[in-house]
Design a binder for these strands. Structure first.
Length: 284
DNA sequence: AACTACTCCTGGAGGC
DNA sequence: TGCCTCCAGGAGTAGT
């Protein structure tokens, strides 16, 4: 579930608590979590210089000229706790709850810092992957993904979105937007929200949107991501949005009323993904 | 090259 | 209560 806004929010929170800290120990009980090329122990003794993000990857830069490249995939979670067990920063998948006693049975790695604080890497589905590599190899690692522009950057314009969709013009809009080469960092939740906001049906062919619809979609993606990053990420638990929040507007709300027109929201399966639409607002 | 379906995993929900 | 099936979903990969 962690998409761009979740990873970005987590990056910002952790930046305030781990930058300047030196790693004194690292342990992992799940061998497949760290996929190389270097061993996790290579990080010990290094001080965190900064945390970066590209698409859904979080990248830690160390004074030792090494980098830790993380992908939380569906259910990865990071919790940073001080030496008395209080949360300093937490984010990613909300299960288990961020105040759960740690380590949890799904905690697969623990990083200890020079102030006694610890970072717990927890992932109930074991899909997350961590890579330790020389810092100068990070660009080479990222290059083959050919990520599209970051949605909040100046590089993300109507023209770049048009090119991205044109590349997948025979595909439906939803899978075309999930494709990280089109726009970096969108996932299932924020694609649903963006399409609803733009009034576009997820099954529309990506190559069939008009200039005006393209503008709407561009604006919608921008505002949905910006809102999530600045005002709080989507809270989806067990595939359902909380009735107490107005965001996300449609994702996880099958059977609820469309906030715009009142039509009952439907759930579809598009490209193997649970997809929420308003049959009135989102024109096929 | 473009696209689809399956795979990796576990826990929670719902049916009976 | 308990067993079973389904579902959640990012992205890599095998197959068409």
């Amino acid at each position: 579930m962690p998409e761009l806004p979740e990873v970005e929010t987590l990056r910002r929170a952790l930046s305030a608590t781990v930058v300047g800290r030196r790693i004194t120990a690292i342990e992992s009980q799940l061998p497949k979590l760290f996929v190389g090329p270097e061993e996790p122990e290579a990080l010990v003794g290094g001080t965190v210089i900064c945390l970066r993000r590209r698409a859904k990857f979080m990248i830690w830069d160390f004074s030792s000229r090494r980098a830790l490249v993380m992908h939380l995939k569906l259910s990865g979670q990071l919790v940073h706790r001080d030496d008395e067990g209080r949360n300093l920063a937490a984010g990613g998948h909300p299960v288990p709850a961020f105040d759960t006693p740690l380590p949890h049975k799904a905690t697969h790695a623990i990083m200890t810092f020079d102030d006694g604080s610890r970072l717990f890497v927890t992932d109930i589905r074991q899909f997350a992957r961590l890579r330790v590599m020389p810092a100068d190899e990070v660009p080479t690692f990222l290059e083959p993904f050919r990520f599209g522009p970051e949605p909040l950057s100046d590089e993300f314009g109507v023209d770049s979105l048009a090119r991205g969709l044109q590349r997948h013009r025979r595909l439906a809009l939803k899978p075309a937007l999930l494709e990280q080469r089109t726009v970096a960092g969108l996932g299932n939740i924020y694609v649903d929200e963006s399409l609803w906001r733009a009034g576009l049906h997820p099954l529309r062919p990506a190559g069939g949107v008009t200039e005006e619809e393209l503008e709407r979609l561009h604006t919608a993606i921008r505002s949905v991501i910006d809102r999530a990053v600045t005002h709080g990420v989507a809270e989806i638990l067990n595939g359902r949005a909380s009735p107490n929040h107005d965001f996300p507007a449609v994702h996880g709300r099958e059977g609820a009323a469309c906030p715009r027109c009142g039509t009952t929201l439907e759930k579809l399966k598009v490209a193997q993904r649970g997809t929420y639409v308003c049959g009135t607002c989102q024109v096929s």
